[in-house]
């Protein structure tokens, strides 16, 4: 297992720090510039969701490999209200708040693998992978 770090996600400035750290991991995994930008953008979207809708949580960033290719793994979790209808939350333009409703669906398009686990009262956990 590669390098792994956990970052708190309690305030807006934590999103900036997470973006910077994800960028660093993506560079170290030798991802191309477009892939780097995509995983950093996806991290920003999911982290903001966890902060605004989930009341904050944490973000795990890990350097790993997938089928022999270097990869970046992210796990962003919160202990907020959770999502009752994940299918609906994944639709472009759907939002329970005031956003554009692109966070979840958009982030999924930007990464190579995406997993979401959530239930009412159980918080939300989103996992993202981007590989070389």
């Amino acid at each position: 297992m590669g390098k792994r770090e956990t970052f708190p996600l309690k305030q807006e400035t934590d999103i900036v720090l997470i973006r910077q750290r994800v960028r660093k991991y993506a560079e170290e995994a030798k991802l191309g510039i477009v892939s780097q930008t995509k995983i950093v953008t996806a991290a920003s979207e999911i982290a903001r969701n966890a902060l605004i809708y989930g009341g904050g949580g944490e973000c795990v960033v890990e350097a790993c490999s997938r089928d022999g290719r270097s990869a970046v793994y992210l796990c962003i979790s919160d202990s907020g209200a959770g999502i009752a209808d994940i299918d609906r939350a994944m639709v472009d333009g759907y939002t329970s708040g005031s956003g554009l409703g692109l966070g979840l669906s958009g982030a999924k398009r930007l990464v190579d693998a995406f997993a979401i686990d959530s239930a009412p009262g159980q918080g939300t956990r989103v996992e993202l992978w981007k590989w070389r």
Binding site: T37, K38, T41, E45, D92, L100, L102, A107, L110
Partner: peptide, 14 residues
């Protein structure tokens, strides 16, 4: 706008 940013924006849906 950087090219990688433009590509990412479109894929994001913006």
């Amino acid at each position: 706008m950087q090219p990688a940013v433009a590509i990412t924006l479109v894929e994001l849906g913006l």
